[in-house]
Amino acid sequence: MMQVVYEKTKGLTDKQTHYCPGCTHGVIHKLVGEVLVELGVLGKTVGVAPVGCSVLAYDYFNCDMHEAAHGRAPAVATGIKRVLPDHTVFTYQGDGDLASIGTAEIIHAAHRGEKFTTIFVNNAIYGMTGGQMAPTTLIGQKATTSPYGRDQATTGMPLKVSEMLATIDGAAFVERVSVHDVPNIRKAKKAIKKAFQVQIEGTGFGIVEILSTCPTNWGITPVDSLTWLKENMIPYYPLGNFRTPEEVK
């Protein structure tokens, strides 16, 4: 007798995504949707979408959603969580949204220990606007606004968000994961589930930084993007847990 072991999660709507072929935003959406269903909180979840490639995420998550101004999702989530403390609240943000215009908001949400969960997708580039350099763009990496390769002398070193937020006590859970292969996707899902559990148990703010691909703006095929991520991003952005409350460890 055959049993279904993998199917599309109820945590996502039927709307097909606009993401480019092979963009792992789609994988991350599935993980978040699956976790919300498995934790049994989908009906009491409110998500906040950013501005960037995942701006349309409010059409993809099968729960109440807000579309926030660029960088402001953590502030919007703060407002929601303070009004609905027993609901599950998350923000889904890219590196332009969180690590550039929204750094004050994410740092202060962690600083206040706001009890929501942030899914931070780091693909080292601005996707939606056509491939500009992001604070997470690697040294030497070409982008439309670092056409000769990112130069540390004029643009500084890529920002390590997880390490930065791990210095803040209010950040109860900080982990960096990747989705460049199946084992790592499964590990990423575990981390996402832990981050949401930290919220549900009321311990504090949780963030999962997820290294992700951008085939279109990296200018390589989706399959090669997985390799590029592994060989270039992981050395600079080491995977692992940076902060976890004792009880969730």
Partner: peptide
């Protein structure tokens, strides 16, 4: 009830966006 001192006026008005969107008088 809840009072939050935001990190900036930009954050404060966006907290309003969230709270109001969740149906609260704020």
């Amino acid at each position: 009830g809840a009072f939050v001192q935001a990190e900036s006026e930009v954050a404060a008005i966006n907290m309003i966006y969230g709270a109001a969107g969740a149906g609260a008088r704020c």
